[in-house]
């Protein structure tokens, strides 16, 4: 199992108003190519910080992240990200948002337009290409965000609680779409690191779930999710699914008690 993303001894501390905050301490984690990894942990455990470091948006205090063998020093459109908040640019139309990452690449204007209109259809926004984000619902904006992150055809997709603000039904739909879309143009599976605090979401989506400890965050355990793909929404009701959910919940509860 070769690591596509390799996280080695990452530590991060911030200068907070109440002194130094150690967000992450000696995080080690390997993510093989094509894996869907979910990061769960108590709030404030640094799971978002870890994803920002992989994206190249935040510099680690020590340690190194390598993606495809190369150390991460800055963001790269081969590693796109979907944020927790609304990051859709309100001054651009849906099509302009989705095509944003393409204008910096080698693709011709005509090809860009074609890719964008395919993505608009793929995420179910047909007919909204020229709408401004203010005309869209929260779920629709998240679809724009997803399509924009897919547009550059990245091998790595980083997601920081992307569906946290959505209602339960919209969230389920988005999860199904995400699984459907998580392959590259060449049919390869994308490597995805997905932060969530929703355990069902984590188990439903992931190949493996990494459970983090409270601050300073580190990886406590990585659990395999054995369910075959494609997964139906109904697997959430199975005994195995609920047993795994119970196991992760126990881990988080005991962490809470220790700290």
């Amino acid at each position: 199992m070769s690591a596509y993303i390799s996280i080695a001894d990452i530590s991060k501390s911030f200068a907070g108003t109440a002194g130094r905050i150690d967000a992450l301490q000696n995080v080690n984690l390997d993510v093989p190519a094509g894996e869907f990894l979910c990061l769960v942990g108590p709030s404030g455990c640094g799971k978002s910080t870890l994803v920002f470091i992989i994206a190249g948006l935040v510099k680690a205090s020590s340690g190194e992240v390598r993606v495809a063998g190369k150390p991460v020093v800055e963001p790269d459109p081969d590693r796109t990200m979907v944020f927790q908040g609304d990051a859709v640019f309100p001054w651009m139309t849906v099509a302009q948002n989705i095509g944003y990452g393409l204008r910096f690449g080698a693709m011709s204007k005509k090809e860009q337009g074609k890719t964008v209109s395919q993505l608009v259809d793929l995420v179910g926004l047909t007919g909204f290409a020229d709408a401004f984000p203010k005309e869209l619902s929260g779920g629709m904006k998240k679809r724009v965000d997803l399509a924009r992150a897919y547009a550059t055809n990245p091998t790595v997709l980083l997601m920081d609680e992307p569906f946290g603000a959505l209602d339960a039904i919209t969230k389920e739909k988005m999860q199904v779409d995400l699984m459907r879309l998580s392959v590259t143009d060449t049919g390869q599976r994308r490597t995805i690191v997905f932060v969530t605090h929703d355990l069902e979401e984590a188990i439903f989506l992931a190949d493996r779930v990494a459970v983090m400890t409270p601050r300073p965050g580190t990886i406590e355990v990585v659990l395999d999710v054995p369910f075959p793909r494609p997964r139906e929404a109904s697997i959430r009701l199975s005994t195995e699914f609920q047993a795994l959910r119970g196991q992760i919940r126990e881990l988080l509860v005991s962490e809470e008690e220790e700290s």
């Binding site: 963001p75 990200m81 944003y100 910096f104 690449g105």
Partner: peptide, 16 residues
């Protein structure tokens, strides 16, 4: 800052 971060991850330079 979220807009600036999103643009950076999509490959925008500082000028862009």
């Amino acid at each position: 800052p979220i807009y600036i971060m999103a643009a950076r991850t999509l490959g925008a330079s500082r000028l862009e």
